[in-house]
């Protein structure tokens, strides 16, 4: 009975915590980037929290899309996917459903990535093909049989990123599994000394985090590279680079739908970092003392992402492929070392 109560409380509270904390993260990231650029930067709550509510209350605009309802519902699906992922990593869900495996997380992450494919195919903004201009009058170059929207170009890029770009993240996801011989998330956490039933703050120092081992450190680097790809953060933001495809698949999101997209992105930043903390520090999210160090450690990856982003341009596939392959190779080395 207690398990079910704990399950219910966790199911309600962890997404709320994820929502609250995640609304801070874009602001923190922007602030760090601004400081690197010797600017003051926006107030910390503006890019995540207030932007969400600002867009929520803007006038609703019908997107130019063959299926506007589906297009609008995709960020909502993304948010729930992310909430589902973080709930899978909680001890309360482990006790009741025992679904919390790395395979489940990898699968859900793939679905999350696929959402961008749908978004891109369902958006037909005015910024490219639909812009009125007499291109096809007599005398103009007539070559293309197909005139492609920016969003469709972005879809192709998303597909490439799904195929190759995010590979390091999945390798980084499975380094703990190889290290501890289990795909169960709680098993991984337990192997690092975490006991959800008895955990108090002073137990932090008796944990044996994976990240402080050689395979853990290598896996963490691979995971971080994949994290940047999954977030479409610089230098891997070619899916929505301003230089050509502008916002890419999310170009037509406005008003409450853009608020939804912002929230999806914020929650993704939080959840993917939360998974990292669970796997590499052995501290899963749960209602209890463990939540405090968990949230503090969750800041690590967004802060790192902000710093890397501030010092890199957008990379094209000419650079993305070798980088991704390099990080994947690094991850494989981590796997091999973990096996040994």
């Amino acid at each position: 009975m207690m398990d079910w109560i704990d399950f219910a409380i966790t199911t309600v509270c962890i997404p709320i915590v994820a929502f609250v904390v995640s609304t801070w993260l874009p602001g923190i990231m922007r602030k760090i980037q601004a400081r690197i650029q010797l600017r003051i930067g926006p107030p910390v709550l503006t890019p995540g929290f207030w932007a969400f509510f600002k867009f929520l209350y803007k006038e609703r605009i019908r997107p130019v899309s063959p299926m506007p309802r589906l297009y609008h519902s995709l960020p909502v699906i993304g948010i729930f996917l992310m909430f589902f992922i973080i709930l899978l990593t909680t001890p309360a869900w482990e006790t009741v459903l025992t679904l919390g495996t790395l395979v489940a997380i990898a699968g859900l992450m793939k679905v999350e990535e696929m959402l961008y494919l749908f978004m891109g195919n369902l958006s037909k903004s005015i910024l490219s093909v639909r812009m009125p201009y007499p291109d096809q009058v007599k005398g103009a170059v007539m070559k293309g049989k197909v005139r492609r929207f920016f969003e469709q170009v972005a879809v192709v890029r998303t597909f490439k990123l799904i195929s190759i770009g995010s590979f390091p993240l999945y390798i980084g996801l499975f380094v703990p599994a190889v290290m501890y011989g289990s795909i169960g998330i709680m098993a991984v956490a337990s192997a690092q000394g975490f006991d959800p039933a008895t955990f108090v703050l002073r137990d932090l120092f008796s944990l044996d985090p994976l990240i402080f081992t050689v395979p853990g450190a290598i896996g963490a680097i691979a995971y971080f590279a994949g994290y940047l790809v999954i977030l479409n953060e610089y230098p891997f933001s070619i899916m929505h680079t301003k230089a050509d495809v502008v916002e890419g698949p999310t170009l037509e999101y406005a008003a409450w739908a853009r608020a939804g997209y912002y929230l999806m992105r914020e929650v993704t930043i939080f959840v993917m970092s939360s998974v990292f903390v669970t796997l590499y520090f052995g501290i899963p999210p749960m209602i209890g003392w463990a939540l405090i160090p968990h949230i503090i450690l969750v800041m690590l990856l967004p802060v790192g992402a902000a710093i890397v982003s501030a010092f890199t341009p957008v990379l094209t596939f000419k650079q993305v492929y070798p980088l991704s392959l390099g990080f994947s190779a690094l991850g494989v080395i981590g796997l091999i070392v973990a096996m040994l």
Binding site: M131, Y133, V146, R147, R148, F150, D244
Partner: peptide, 10 residues
């Protein structure tokens, strides 16, 4: 070349 990607004026 079968695919055209138009960019601009805006």
């Amino acid at each position: 070349a079968e695919v055209e990607v138009p960019m601009g004026m805006v």
